[in-house]
């Protein structure tokens, strides 16, 4: 199939970007969206033009690196990652608009590449259980009900791609933070640092310049790993409880 692409081009963080139009021909429906970009980039390179920079790595939907905002949706139509979006989701003759994630906390680096290090800093603020190597008791010492383990797992599947931020009209990172806070709040191992964790992670989230959650649910609707909105409720109550009862003034 033949397609028209309107792609955001921006030389670097400081320059002003603009949309550029490209035409791609003979695209197979079995191609992934990124493979279609590979084809375009090969053409650009041979024409002496600068290929379009975009983030990608595992191309199997788990590393969370790919991050294109396609036709009004993070990762495009369908609840998946960009690398798992296939061209059979489009029709011959379609025009596809591709933009980078847009958020103050995710500045554009080049073209479709953004800087998501804010997520790493949020995890550094408390998204861990402090256990030094070698300190651990036997793994079966603490039984965890299967339902709890499964629920914690559902929250833990977040791949940190940032689609939640990209989808939210407020560029809020609540779903990302909530997934980590909820995972540890549910598990017995997470109890010791439970209050401190949520207070510090939320403080870091605010400091990074993400917006607030207004419960529109857009994040969960677009999340490629289907992280539930219930996690945000858990985050809210963890935060409220921690602020009201913790010893940290």
């Amino acid at each position: 199939m033949n397609l028209t692409l309107k792609v955001w081009r921006q030389k670097n963080a400081n320059s002003k970007g603009e949309f550029k139009t490209y035409h791609v021909k003979d695209i197979s429906p079995d191609m992934s969206f990124l493979e279609m970009f590979d084809v375009l980039n090969e053409e650009l390179l041979l024409k002496g033009e600068d290929p379009i920079a975009f983030d990608h790595d595992c191309r199997e939907g788990i590393c969370g690196m790919c991050s294109m905002y396609i036709n009004g949706h993070p990762h495009g139509p369908g609840q998946t990652t960009t690398c798992q979006l296939h061209m059979r989701s489009f029709k011959d003759g379609d025009t596809i608009v591709v933009e980078p994630w847009r958020a103050k906390a995710f500045p554009v680096v080049k073209d479709l590449v953004v800087d998501r290090s804010a997520f790493d800093r949020i995890i550094q603020a408390g998204g861990y259980i402090s256990v030094n190597t070698g300190n651990a008791p036997d793994a079966n010492e603490i039984p965890i009900p299967k339902e709890v383990a499964d629920a914690a797992f559902n929250a833990a599947t977040c791949i940190g791609c940032g689609a939640c931020v990209a989808a939210c009209k407020n560029a809020s990172a609540m779903l990302f933070v909530a997934a980590k806070v909820a995972q540890f709040a549910m598990l017995p191992q997470g109890q010791v640092e439970r209050k401190k964790r949520v207070e510090q992670m939320v403080a870091q989230m605010d400091a990074e310049g993400f917006g607030a959650c207004t419960n529109t649910g857009a994040c969960a609707a677009e999340c490629p790993k289907e992280i539930s909105l219930a996690n945000i409720a858990i985050l809210n109550r963890e935060y409220l409880a921690a602020k009201a009862t913790s010893e940290y003034v």
């Binding site: 259980i129 070698g134 651990a136 008791p137 793994a139 039984p143 009900p145 299967k146 383990a149 540890f184």
Partner: peptide
Amino acid sequence: NIIDQCVAQGVPFAREYGGLL
């Protein structure tokens, strides 16, 4: 030791209904 360490870190391994791994 690896399994012990990972469980202590909060890695949500699959569990049986009795709560064990």
